[in-house]
């Protein structure tokens, strides 16, 4: 069967969005009046980055130190586990726990000061960790006194 062609070109109505050619382009061209942009601020059009341009590669931290730290930690952990397993296998062995030596108490020297009230008393015997300081040795003076302080219940 022979193929026939349409000799006169014509517009083909196409629903909006369905065809590859917008329908407006099919309308006859008309001259349009565009308002002058004198008073409108000129906004620079955003420029889209050129995706094809070569960008510098981001700088990353040197992983060497982190790797070394992780490796050291792993080695330490494995060593501790091996040591614990080995000590547990020995009967009577006690795993050595890290201990902190208790700090020695600071020497506290209490200075006890006193005086001998009566002369002729025995030489002072310093009590442990104390210092006896004889400040004075007043002599008693006999005097008539009407008031006496004494232990409760003592006979005057």
């Amino acid at each position: 069967m022979p193929i026939r062609t349409d000799p006169a070109p014509r517009a083909i109505p196409v629903a909006p969005g369905q065809g590859s050619v917008p329908s407006a382009e099919l309308a006859p061209a008309r001259e349009m009046t565009v308002p002058s942009p004198v008073h409108a601020p000129v906004r620079p059009m955003p420029t889209r980055p050129d995706l094809t341009a070569a960008r510098p590669a981001p700088r990353r931290p040197d992983p060497t130190s982190a790797r070394l730290a992780v490796a050291a930690g792993g080695i330490a952990t494995i060593s501790a586990l091996l040591a614990a397993i080995g000590s547990a296998a020995v009967p009577g062995a006690v795993a050595a726990a890290p201990t902190i030596a208790p700090a020695a108490p600071l020497p506290v020297q209490t200075i006890v000061k006193y005086v001998y009230v009566q002369p002729g008393a025995a030489a002072p015997v310093a009590p442990p960790a104390a210092v006896a300081t004889v400040v004075a040795t007043p002599a008693p003076r006999p005097a008539p006194v009407v008031v006496v302080t004494r232990q409760s219940g003592a006979k005057p």
Binding site: K113, Y114, V115, V117, A121, A122, P124, V135, A136
Partner: peptide, 28 residues
Amino acid sequence: LDVLDRAPVLGAILLASDGRVLAVPRTT
């Protein structure tokens, strides 16, 4: 003697069991 030296007292006289008679210094 230690406590009385720091306590708010004016003086103190102590008779010890060994016979000594001691006083805090400000008793004088």
